[in-house]
Structures are given as C-alpha cells and as structure tokens.
C-alpha cells in the first residue's frame, strides 16, 4: 500500500472513530432526556420520595443537593482562593512548591470513595457528627479543593504581568496589588471555575453515601430555624442527595418505579449540569467583556 492510500485510510479511520463517539454521546444524552424528561413533572419535583410505593418525588433530595452545594462552596472557596493565590503569586520555584503541587495532585486523583471514607472516619465516627449534612459538606470540600484551587490558580496566572507591575509601580503592596488588581481581573475565570466545580459537586455520590447518609429525615419547610431538628437548614440532619438517590433506588430497588424515578432524576441532574456548564461559559464571557471592555 502506498503512502497516499495509507493517508486516506488513516483519515477515514479517524473520522469513523470520531463519528462513533459523537453517536455515543448523542445516544447517552438522547436516552437520558427522552426517558427522563416526560416524568419530570411539578409533582415529581415537589413531593416527597416514597419508600416502597410508586409515584414518589425528589423534593427533599433536590433541596439537599442544592444546600450541600452552597455549603460546600462557602467552605471550600476561601481555602481554595488562599491556596491558589499562594501558588500563583507567592510560591517560589523550588522543591517545596514542587512538593505542594504534588500533594494537591495526589488529592485530586484520590478516588472519591476514599475521600468519602476518610470523611466517615473523621467526622461521622471520630467527631461524632453522625450522618449529617455538615459531614457531607466537609467531605465534598476535600473532594472539591484541589480542582477549585487549580482552576482559580489558572485564572490568576492568566492576568497579564503588566497589571501587577503597574500596581507595584503605584506603590501598592504586593497584597494590595493582588486584592485590588489581580483578583478583579481574574474574576471571570474564578467564577467559571466555581461554577464548573459546582457541577461536579452536584453529581457526586460516592463521597456522600457514608458521610451525608443514604436516608433523609422528615423536613418541615415552614421551619427555617437552623437549630430545629426538622428544619431544612439544620446541618446535623442526615440528607440524601439526587445522585445518592439514583444509586439507592437502583441498588436496593424497593420501590416498583425505580427505573422511572432514576430516569427522571438522571435527566434532572444532567440538565442542571448542562445549565451550569453553559452558565459558566456565558457568565465568564460576559464578565470578561464588561471588565476588559473587549468586544
């Protein structure tokens, strides 16, 4: 076979493989949305999950997922921001920094089940917090920190060096330059990073089954006192999220409409994640334009 024929053949193979992957994705998305969306009714979103009958909803799971997402972001953002500023602005290029980067890389590649089990050991057992939202939020924070840190670091590093030099030339201290010039300029990137990691948190289940628990408690949505045991805001109650719900109804399979419930919940999860992804891109672009006056 001569070189030209080989070239054509290779090109054809590459196009075929790409086509297969696009078809797989289309199939996955189509399947999730087609089987799930018809069951996504207001009733499904607003009623409690049933434990053994058909027709349950995901009201509490949806709330728990969102609440955990907010809590996790509140806890992990300051830490990730600090660590990212350190890595991008203060860290010298030496073996200590290398070691720190390796550590963060290790944390990011740890299986989420291991992170979840560590959370179980430390918070649920050792600190006696039990299966609770706060244990779950802390475990998710561990899971989230390395990715959020490197996303924010990238955003900070993307700010041109000139801007820092301008700040320093005005006599600002290093810290003031970072706070007043670098962080605002990096804001679009940071926001994108936060939203993208939010998508990951929203769909995570393995880190949660042994920290936030696999069952919900009775929630009274009229009670907004965070210290009341039935309040939705109470951080000490066990909480099942959407992703954990899918896993549970499929592995325990007590309710007769497990497939329908998981299809609808999957569709809900995927839609939320897509919205997060598109939102991150849109918001990032818009903020970037606003802050830099670029077209």
């Amino acid at each position: 076979m001569d070189a030209k024929k080989k070239d054509k053949l290779a090109t054809a193979v590459i196009y075929i493989l790409v086509g297969i992957v696009v078809l797989i994705l289309a199939g996955i998305l189509g399947n999730i949305l087609i089987t799930g969306v018809p069951h996504l009714s207001w009733h499904f979103l607003s009623s409690e999950a049933s434990s053994y009958q058909a027709g349950g909803g995901v009201r509490d799971q949806l709330f728990n997922s969102l609440y955990l997402l907010v809590l996790t972001t509140i806890i992990s953002l300051p830490i990730a921001l600090g660590a990212a500023i350190y890595l991008a602005e203060y860290a010298k290029d030496n073996w200590i920094t290398n070691l720190i980067r390796t550590t963060i890389q290790i944390l990011s590649s740890l299986p989420s089940i291991v992170v979840g089990l560590f959370g179980y050991l430390l918070f649920v057992v050792q600190f006696g917090l039990g299966f609770s939202i706060i244990s779950g939020a802390l475990a998710l924070t561990f899971f989230n920190l390395p990715i959020l840190t490197s996303n924010i670091e990238e955003a900070i590093k993307g700010v041109p060096q000139d801007q820092r030099e301008a700040g320093l030339a005005l006599g600002l201290s290093n810290w003031k330059t970072i706070r007043g010039i670098v962080l605002p300029a990096a804001l679009p990137g940071i926001l994108t990073g936060i939203i993208l990691s939010a998508g990951r948190i929203f769909g995570e289940a393995a880190a949660l089954i042994y920290t936030a628990g696999q069952s919900g408690s009775t929630i009274n949505y009229a009670d907004w006192n965070p210290f009341s045991p039935t309040s939705p805001l109470n951080v000490m109650r066990p909480a099942e999220t959407l992703a954990v719900h899918i896993w549970k109804v499929n592995t325990e399979g007590i309710i007769p409409d497990a497939t329908i419930v998981s299809a609808a919940t999957s569709a809900l999860l995927v839609i939320v994640v897509i919205v997060f992804n598109l939102g991150a891109r849109y918001l990032g672009n818009k903020l970037y334009r606003k802050l830099t006056a670029a077209k």
Binding site: P78, I79, A80, L81, G82, A83, I85, Y86, L87, E89, Y90, I100, T103, I104, I106, L107, L110, V114, V115, F118, L122, F142, L145, P146, T149, L172, S173, N174, W175, K176, I178, R179
Partner: peptide, 26 residues
C-alpha cells in the same frame, strides 16, 4: 501596608497548609 501584606501572605500560607495537613491525614 506591610501589616496587610503579612496578614494576606499569612492567610495564603494557612490555606495551603490546610490542604497539606488534609492530604497527610487522609
């Protein structure tokens, strides 16, 4: 400004230290 610099730098050191403690304890 120098004080702020110390504080700011200290905060970032604290954050990175927290992550390292976390990995070691896991």
């Amino acid at each position: 400004e120098t004080h702020q610099e110390y504080w700011g730098k200290g905060l970032t050191y604290f954050a990175i230290g927290l992550i390292i403690v976390l990995v070691v304890s896991i």
